Simulated assay, not measured.
Amino acid sequence: MARSGDLKSELVAFAQGPRFARRLDAQLDEAADRLGFLDEAAAIETIDHFVLQYRLADGSTVVERFVAQRRPPLPEDERAMLLGWCDVVEGVFEVQGLERDAAILHNLLDDIVYRVHSNLGQRALGKLRKGMFVAARIVPVHPDTDAWLVSGNLTTYPPGDGPELARVAAQTLSVNPQLLRRNPEMLRRAWEMQAEARADFIEVFGTDLLVLDPAEAHVRLREYHRHRWDKSVAGLDEETAAQAAKTGPSLDELSSLPEELLAADTVAVICDEAEGICYYADFGRLDALFADPRLVRDRTCLAQLREYLNDDSVSPMVIRRLVQRHPGNADAVFRALLRKPAFTWERDGEELLCRRKKRHYGHEPSPSITPVGTRLAELLRAEGRHGR
């Protein structure tokens, strides 16, 4: 523990050196713009993220550079310790208990209990009390242990803030379902829930892909979420069902499309096995193009397909869906788009997607539906009662 403190100080000094100054300053400026201010706690968190998680131009992290370039070289055990710090857990924790040199923290996000130390000693953990909440970043003390170490700042909250923090935790999970990766049971439940939601979608609509105008999409999605709601409360007594309705979003909120889609001519609503429900603007135009490749003469259609192909936020799944719907016409469409007369989708399609959409490759998919642990659910119910 003492050695980790010495090395962390050396690592931060390395990160604040002239070779990384421009990139670190940019991260601090971005944090200030996002938050509207940059106090000491925010600066510490930003620097810690930069040191352990920010990807440099070659794909490495600052801590990896430090370990590789440090002179004299670190012993193998200390190299392993520092490289293990790339495995960061960011969470909202409830203090379950305190030991002489550690705090027992339950992460509301992944529903795992962590035994957490600080290389600053008792003065860092001494302010914690059982029942309090903590927003923190933690890293493994060493990959060969199950002990964890505070990395950066500890922000504490009184027990009464639990319900509000639970709402923030639930929102964080919905945006970052990969946070469940540490908890295999929660991850398994998430995939089961997603499969059930997709089965319901197909039961309601007879397909997993709809192409509609935005107004109709809202109506049909409301129909789907009403079906899901009726299933979820079947068998519950009236009081329990009413309480459940208070703690979750309304049917209209669930059925609302992202604002940027409202002006689209058509919207594809796809309930994919791996990616869950997702929406894509003007899919109907591309569907018509793949149905009739003579439309390649329409520059608007080709421009739309080029935008789909070049936009990294558009999943490769959507391009594959277009091809699957009209498999005999894909070659003609892509030959016109790419101006490559020899292109064939069967031979060249996946390589094209991998080259244009690198962000979507090289990692395990995450479910789009996120279950919550028992304690988080309790706090969310309390938040719902207090907020009404």
Results as ranks from 00 to 15, higher is better:
26 A>V: 06
156 T>F: 01
343 F>G: 03
227 H>D: 00
126 G>R: 14
133 F>P: 04
301 C>N: 10
322 L>Q: 09
108 L>M: 10
93 F>S: 01
279 Y>H: 11
155 T>M: 08
83 L>V: 04
176 N>C: 07
201 F>C: 07
359 R>N: 14
352 L>Y: 09
318 V>W: 11
329 N>M: 03
216 E>Y: 07
173 L>P: 03
177 P>E: 08
286 L>H: 07
11 L>H: 02
370 T>C: 14
154 L>F: 10
194 Q>E: 14
306 R>Q: 14
334 F>S: 01
121 G>L: 09
235 G>Q: 06
81 M>G: 00
364 E>S: 08
318 V>E: 01
335 R>C: 02
270 I>Q: 10
279 Y>V: 03
310 N>D: 14
109 L>N: 03
19 R>D: 07
31 A>Y: 02
271 C>N: 13
47 I>G: 02
61 T>Y: 01
378 E>Q: 14
152 G>H: 06
328 G>I: 07
243 Q>R: 15
70 R>K: 13
253 E>F: 06
287 D>K: 09
45 E>K: 14
189 R>G: 05
319 I>R: 07
208 D>G: 09
353 L>G: 06
118 S>V: 10
300 T>P: 00
317 M>I: 15
378 E>C: 07
4 S>C: 12
197 A>Q: 13
239 E>W: 11
36 G>E: 01
